[in-house]
Design a protein around this nucleic acid. Sequence first.
DNA 1: GCCAACGTTGGC
DNA 2: GCCAACGTTGGC
Length: 154
Amino acid sequence: MAYWLFKSEPDTFGIDDLAARPEQTEPWDGVRNYQARNFMRDDVKVGDKLFFYHSSCKDVGIAGVAEITQAAYADPSQFNPESKYFDPKASPDNPRWVCVNVTFVEKFKRVLPLAKIKTMPEITELGVVKKGHRLSIMPVQPEEWDALYQAAKG
DNA sequence: GCCAACGTTGGC
DNA sequence: GCCAACGTTGGC
């Protein structure tokens, strides 16, 4: 089992929105970055856990935990001309983009702020603390996961 | 809203 | 394949 960090803007879709979904499950669609896609396509597996990270908002940081409940499949929004994620170069025969399903696990009482994460000595590899790293999906090392989880619960 | 740091596009 | 221009992300 692997650990991940997924970013989302809570004004669009936050951890409360995930918790309110039927089955508390939602397709993580709209990823249009190749590196992030490759993580989803090749490495994200059912049972993996992820930190739900809130970006571009008042309380930037890790808001809770979710779990992967379906591995990569073609992201339907790429075929839909009405969608803002429509990709004219993608076709059902030859899809470019994938999504996975994520299911709510828990919401932290308080968001673990990015500013706090940056002060943690254990956290050196995580993309969000590296300058200018803008990936929306990134791996989290097990030791980093443990340290972050403890900090969030503590 | 600013701006740095990327990623993508397209002309050559 | 290079690289300038452009668009986007995301913290502050």
